[in-house]
Design a protein around this nucleic acid. Structure first.
Length: 633
DNA sequence: ACTTTCACG
DNA sequence: ACGTACGTGAAAGTG
């Protein structure tokens, strides 16, 4: 069915109803625009209390906490019909049935939503609905879809977790792309993808139709996925993920305080720094430091010999290539091995400064709420290994070697920032899952694992350099890396790395056997690994070597996710600010920070994880996050 | 839309 | 037989 094929009926005094076809069946979208319509909606809610009802919101944008954000429509629906209720009082419709919407959200016992966290946070922040009580009644179809297939749209055979691709697969191959359709409508009314959401008329027929169709599709998606979830035995895991998502949503709602004055000064300084170095690059004929082809040409013109190439065959001029040419080591210190190429150094410094300015400092400033708090998008179930991700701004990947960016985030007045992280959690998970005797014994003995490996391989006279090589090999092996990559990554010569790998496999025979078993099983049976939590992770045919990594990364993620639930049980959620893969960042009153930190530690630590202890480190800093990375406060 | 680069664990 | 480094988010340039 095409978008234009619906017909709108509006007899005098009758509700505006739009009809459409989904999966060969007629569906109705009812627009609530009068007190009479509201009464009909309330009656409908009463008669649907025993059935799952999908809900969704249309809003002015994605930044729930930005000044000016508004919820515009709230929709409810089942497989055959949807009710669209305008709640945007700023739109001048003269009628906004807030009370009915609130009541529906507070009393319907079984709610569905796709990507429910967004809608739940929006209605809790702007319609006064209690988040926790609402969340308890929600099933998020995105969570179900992720459990059934965690692959993203960019992965081989992956379709991702958007409502559109999932509907096309499970509901109706011709289901409309409601978002794309709306963008076209926005352009028609002289707006863009960004501005259209706030500007479009609340009664625009395409807008209300698509709003209604989204809940109908969500209902039907649930009807398709629900039985699959049951059949796969994912009931408990689904409950677990919903609980984890709530803790993360509460972190997101609370937000993390930004030091605005500091960040503004920092952004200006970084921008000036980027400008200075860009000016230097320009003197060498590079008009943009973000244009690799220009940089490569200019460097070759200066007599540099570039050999590394990208996947598409172009000359590579990334940090790894440029640092040696600029005679800089990994800590940006002069090596003294050659004369520094001034263009290479200018490009490196300009790029770093501008990335830090735009991706971090500016991103933080532009996304603060009225109280200068940042509410990053915490996706509790995101990667194909189920790892969490944080975006807008990307607070999980702020520079860690320098404190200047993290210094921007701070605790409330009178409070300090702290962090609790697991010690070498992925290696410990590997030891636990593989049951490797040697590795498990080393952990129990409280040994430094990389030093222990170095001793096994090089003997008691091993050096710090040997330890570093072994650390690289330990990580590289978990990732599935071969000798070439490990040699490149660790900087150690190839023959030495090969010898170290052989020694490593001998020392940790259990790990080797475990990896082989996972891969063999994948080769002969289903192309997947199954984690201890029961999560099934599909493998790419051409990447079966990733089996161990998926297993370890995903299990480590589940360790943190379970820890979040224990933290929540102990009433510690309000202190939490961020999950960062193997750690949590928290803020607490200065006087109690030590006690609270220890409580967090106690909740996170695991005495016996398949025979291996998962221990944690506690760090208490000062007022700012940067203080944990060397800043003064 | 795709590529390249760079920030994290 | 050989060889494969895993997972993210974001900006900017190129086509």
């Amino acid at each position: 069915m095409r978008a234009g094929s619906f017909c709108a009926l509006k007899a005098r005094g009758a509700m505006r109803v739009q009809h459409y076809r989904v999966a060969g069946e007629s569906v109705a979208v009812r627009n609530v625009e009068t007190p009479e319509d509201v009464r009909a909606f309330v009656d409908w809610c009463r008669s649907n209390r025993s059935r799952p009802v999908a809900f969704d919101t249309e809003t002015t944008g994605l930044d729930i906490y930005a000044p000016g954000f508004r919820v515009r429509l709230v929709q409810f629906g089942t497989e055959r019909e949807a009710w669209v209720l305008p709640v945007d009082t700023a739109a001048g419709m003269g009628y906004a049935p807030h009370e009915a919407v609130r009541e529906a959200l507070e009393t319907l016992p079984y709610l569905l939503a796709h990507n429910a966290k967004f809608d739940a946070l929006a209605v809790s922040a702007h319609l006064g609905v209690d988040l926790v009580r609402l969340w308890r009644r929600i099933t998020d179809t995105r969570i179900l879809a992720h459990l059934l297939d965690p692959r993203g749209p960019q992965d081989p055979d992956g379709i991702g977790h958007g409502l559109k691709p999932l509907s096309a697969r499970h509901v109706d191959p011709d289901a409309p792309d409601t978002q794309a359709g709306l963008y076209a409508e926005f352009r028609k009314i002289g707006h863009t993808k960004e501005t259209g959401w706030a500007a479009i008329d609340l009664r625009n027929p395409l807008y209300t139709l698509y709003a209604g169709l989204d809940v109908i599709l969500t209902s039907r998606l649930f009807a398709a996925l629900g039985p699959l979830v049951e059949f796969a035995g994912y009931g408990r895991l689904s409950e677990f993920e919903h609980a984890v998502a709530l803790v993360c949503a509460r972190m997101e709602a609370r937000g993390f305080l930004l030091d605005v004055e500091y960040t503004e000064t920092l952004a200006a300084r970084l921008l000036a720094e980027a400008d200075e170095w860009s000016a230097v690059a320009r003197r060498f004929g590079v008009s943009s430091v973000n244009a690799p082809a220009q940089i490569a040409a200019a460097l070759e013109g200066m007599g540099e010999n570039l050999t590394e190439t990208t996947d598409s065959g172009a000359l590579k001029v990334d940090k790894e290539v440029l640092m040696p040419i600029a005679d800089l080591d990994r800590k940006w210190q002069r090596i003294g091995a050659r004369e520094a190429n001034p263009l290479a150094e200018a490009v490196l410094r300009a790029k770093r400064a501008s990335k830090w300015a735009t991706s971090y400092a500016d991103a933080m400033l532009s996304r603060r709420d009225g109280n200068n708090r940042i509410h990053p998008d915490i996706a509790s179930l995101q990667a194909r290994t189920a790892r969490m991700s944080i975006s807008r701004p990307p607070l999980q990947q702020l520079p860690s070697g320098d404190w200047v960016i993290r210094r921007a985030m701070q605790a409330e007045p009178g409070c300090v920032v702290g962090a609790v992280d697991y010690q070498a959690v992925e290696l410990r998970v590997l030891a636990a899952l593989s049951g490797d005797v040697q590795m498990t014994a080393a952990i129990h003995a409280g040994k430094d694992l990389h030093g222990f490996t170095a001793e096994l391989i090089y003997g008691p006279g091993f050096t710090e350099y040997h330890r570093k090589v072994c650390k690289g090999i330990g990580f590289g092996k978990v990732y599935g890396g071969g000798p070439d990559t490990l040699s490149r990554q660790t900087g150690a010569p190839l023959d030495q790395v090969k010898a170290a790998i052989r020694a490593y496999d001998r020392a940790y025979a259990g790990v080797r056997r475990y990896s082989k078993r996972l891969q063999d099983r994948a080769e002969w049976g289903a192309k997947e690994v199954v984690t201890p939590s029961g999560r099934r992770l599909p493998l790419d045919r051409r990447k079966l070597y990733a089996a161990t990594n998926y297993m370890v990364q995903s299990t480590a993620r589940d360790v943190l996710a379970e820890a979040l639930l224990r933290l929540d049980e102990r009433g510690l959620t309000d202190y939490l600010r961020l999950p960062v893969h193997d750690e949590v960042v928290f803020a607490a009153p200065a006087a109690d920070a030590k006690d609270i930190g220890r409580e967090i530690q106690a909740a996170m630590s695991v005495k016996d994880f398949f025979g291996v202890p998962l221990t944690t480190d506690l760090e208490i800093g000062g007022r700012t996050w940067g203080s944990l990375y060397g800043a003064a406060a």
